[in-house]
Structures are given as C-alpha cells and as structure tokens.
Amino acid sequence: MQIYGEKPTRFGYGEGLVKLGEINPNVVVFDADLAKSTTTIWFAEKFPTRFFDAGIAEQNMLGMAAGMSLMGKIPFVTTYGVFVSGRAWDQIRTTVCYSNLNVKIGGAHGGVSVGPDGATHQALEEITIMRVLPNMTVLSPCDANEAYKATLAAAEMRGPVYLRFGREKVPLLTKPEDPFEIGKAVVYRRGADVGLLATGHMVYHALLAAEALEKEGVSAYVLNVHTIKPIDEEAILDVAAKCKCLVTCEEHQVTGGFGGAVAEVLAKRRPVPMRFIGVQDRFGESGKPDELFEVFGLSAAHIAAAAKDVMKAAGK
C-alpha cells in the first residue's frame, strides 16, 4: 500500500472551501459555533463577508442556507455530523430535499474515532438518515485529498449533498491528481477470493486487511466506495461476480448504513454472502481512537476475520 502522509479528512474540506472561495464568488459558508474544529475558520479568515456563524442553532442554519440557495448562492453548512444530520433532519428533509435546493452539508466528527468526547459527539447514524432522503447525494471520502475533491465536486453539482468527515489524522491513500467522480467507486486491489468494500477511512483498514490476507494466500478485492448515494451498482456487482462473497467496512452503524446500501444492491441483482464490519447497534464511548477501533470490531484484524468467515459461507 502506498501512503502519502497523513491528515484529518476535515482538513481536506476546509482547504476545499478556501479553494471554492477563490474560484466561485457564489460560495458561502455557515458554521454553528465550531468553525475552528470543522476548519471553516480558514474560509472565514479569507472571505469574512461570505462566512456566517449561525450560533448554536442548527435548524435555523439549514433554513438560512436554504434561503441563500434560493437567491443563487451555494451554501456549505457545517458542524458536527451528529448535530447537523440529527438536530436539523426535518429541515434537511422538508425544506432542503423536498424542494431539491442546492445546499451542501458538511458533517465533521463522523465515527467512534472522535475518541474522548464519547457517544454524544460520535456521529454513527448520518449515512442512514441522509441516504434515505430523496434528492440527496451522500459522500464519504477516504482521505483529505479525496475530501478536498469531494468538496469541489459537491459545489459543481446541483442539489443537496451530505459530506462526511472524521476528526483524527488518517493516512493519505490518494494523490491530489487522482481522478474523483461522484458516483464512481475506485478499485484499489483486484482479487478473486473476497471483496472488501469500504467507505471513508475504513478503506485504509480494508487495505491493511487485504495485505494480511495476502500473506495467508487469500486475494482480496478492495473497493473504495466514496459515494454512498447514488451508489456505484456496477462496481459492486463486479466485485460480487468475481469474488462471490464480500465484507462491507464502515465506521458507522451497520443498520441502514453503507453495508445496508450494498446489501440492497446485491439482494436485488446478485445475492452473495456478506459480512458487515461497523458499529453493531450500540452507542459510542469515550476512549482513544485506536482502542475504540478494537472494542467496536473495526480493525484490520476484524476485517480479515470477517473475510475468512464469509468465504467459508460461500463454500470457499
């Protein structure tokens, strides 16, 4: 595996917003009193008249952004994923998605790797509750470079977009010049024994698992599914056709999440045995990110074990 350094994905978002500020005068940014942490402060410092702090009032922030979009602006609203997706869900549903408004939603601090802040601040449900909304696009980039590109791509397209970021530094798996297209999954390894489909920085853990499996003579196919909606059905079916079994990997509830999205595709078009790496219907807890990865069963070792288990189920 080639690694190009490390950086939190939220930094890619912050840098993407600054770039957008330079190239698109219609881009405006909202935050809800977390500008330093979400990194929107970088945009605020360079473009102070186009930055609005909504205060700790997420519902009104979404509504104001909706109004801005109706006047031709491209608003990016930002706060922690828990608050933006949960507290303002009805505003996102009825005001933003029903009218198909051009509002971009950045949710920072996704996953248990948020660490010591604990369950209240670890967003584990956003993929589920955002992807269920008609008109919504859901992006979950694997590293800061991909987050940067996802941010720019979100501004390019019309309609609501949810972008999911993490808090901690994670390895850079992509280069700035690598292509990125919304809805197009990226193949990292081609293997024939088991498919590892991952989203967000779980792509890194899936690659670690693939390396470990290789030592045991198992060849894993690794797919980075950065767009959870609209999901790349063809790429998923390709893995299912080649490997006949697969494991989904997400730092999120498995119920209705990324694994659920993959299962919907397979159930409809090519059912194969699956295993789901992710949070298993429980709340997060305080702890160190690495420690929590072990406790919640998200590490490369867990992925490798699930891969062997699903291979058995597939008669391999």
Partner: peptide
C-alpha cells in the same frame, strides 16, 4: 417553523 429561517437566509443573501 421552517419558513421564517428561509426568508431570513434570502434576506441575508440580498
């Protein structure tokens, strides 16, 4: 409860 926020956002853009 949602429409007033939208009008506020529109006015802010203007």
């Amino acid at each position: 409860g949602q429409g007033l926020s939208v009008i506020v956002g529109m006015a802010l853009a203007a």
